[in-house]
Design a protein around this nucleic acid. Structure first.
Lengths: 116, 116
DNA sequence: CAGAATCCGTTTCGATACTG
DNA sequence: CAGTATCGAAACGGATTCTG
């Protein structure tokens, strides 16, 4: 089960986004799809540190939230592609801000202290 | 113990930020500090759903990452304040993008489908 | 008031093996 | 190729109690 907890606390847009994208991998998946459609195997290779099970799980969750679409071309061998919806593309600014701050932070610790 | 896991995969700014702010509460804490300094008790009241332990833990982590500063005015009764550093302020765009997408998403599900 | 320390349940993660 | 199933480990989160 577990299905879709996604309990959305109404009235807090930050929580809404966090419940969707705050996970450990969601934004990385979106990042890989930002350039266009990707197959399952591609995503797996592009994100080597995520386990198969979790990747499937994240993709399901994101598809469920309608940020991406899963397309199963009924072929043999199987071919399944994922691509962002228009809604999913609206999440890209979050990704951009996240990446940008990561760079700022990296620059900061590089010529300063922090990170014991 | 637990110290600071913060294992930063070098080379991925998204991961860097996610390891810092991807938690369940960090962005909410930043949000409350965006307007200026806050005392511990204030934060506790402003974020009723976070437990004391987790709040302390998040504050430590954020202070450790130098996104905020803890100021202990050695008084009785104790008074401790937290405020954002310049670096912490640079994280506010992430917050803004997160909140904005939350609004977009809420509007989307309101006059459409999704959320089973 | 502002925390530290402890205990404990839930959720998440990941490696492996298996299927259509 | 694109998943599903299962298991155990680890992280996360919360309630309670205690301290200066």
């Amino acid at each position: 089960m577990t299905a879709t907890p996604l309990l959305i606390t109404p009235g807090c847009p930050i929580r809404t986004t966090l419940d969707m994208l705050g996970g450990k991998w969601s934004l990385l998946v979106l990042h890989q799809l930002a350039g266009g459609a990707r197959r399952f195997g591609e995503l797996r290779r592009l994100l080597p540190d995520i386990s198969e099970k979790v990747l499937v799980q994240q993709l399901k969750q994101l598809a469920n939230a309608e940020l991406l679409v899963r397309t199963n071309h009924g072929e043999v061998p199987p071919r399944v592609e994922y691509h962002l919806t228009a809604l999913g593309q609206q999440a890209l600014p979050v990704l951009a801000a996240t990446a940008e701050f990561g760079r700022v932070y990296a620059a900061h610790i590089q010529n300063g202290r922090a990170t014991p």
